[in-house]
Amino acid sequence: MKKIIIFLFIQLTFILWLLYFYKSRSKIKLSNSRIAFYSSVFFYFSIIVLVIITKISLRNNLDSFDLNEDGFFSGNEITDDQRKALENVSSDTGPTFAPIIGILYSLIYFSILYISLKIFREEK
Rank of each mutant, 00 (worst) to 15 (best):
N32Q: 08
S33E: 11
S33K: 11
S33M: 10
R34C: 09
I35Q: 07
I35D: 06
F37A: 15
S39C: 09
S40W: 08
V41H: 04
V41C: 08
F42C: 06
S46C: 07
S46D: 06
I47D: 09
I47E: 07
L50V: 05
V51L: 08
V51H: 06
V51C: 10
I52P: 04
T54G: 10
K55R: 13
I56E: 10
I56H: 09
S57I: 04
S57Y: 11
S57K: 11
L58C: 08
R59H: 11
R59N: 11
N60T: 12
N60F: 12
N61C: 05
L62H: 06
D63V: 09
S64D: 14
F65P: 11
F65Q: 11
D66A: 04
D66Y: 09
D66G: 05
D66R: 08
L67S: 12
L67F: 15
N68Y: 12
N68W: 10
E69R: 15
D70F: 10
D70S: 05
G71L: 05
F73A: 04
S74F: 13
G75R: 04
G75M: 04
N76C: 02
N76R: 13
E77P: 05
I78P: 05
T79F: 02
D81E: 15
D81P: 02
Q82I: 03
Q82G: 00
A85H: 01
A85P: 07
L86G: 13
N88F: 09
N88L: 13
V89F: 09
S91H: 04
G94Y: 10
P95W: 04
P95R: 00
F97G: 01
A98E: 08
I100S: 06
I100F: 14
I101R: 07
I103A: 08
L104W: 06
L104E: 01
L104A: 13
L104P: 00
Y105Q: 11
Y105P: 00
S106N: 03
L107D: 03
L107K: 00
I108H: 03
I108Y: 09
Y109S: 00
F110Q: 03
L113N: 03
Y114T: 00
Y114D: 07
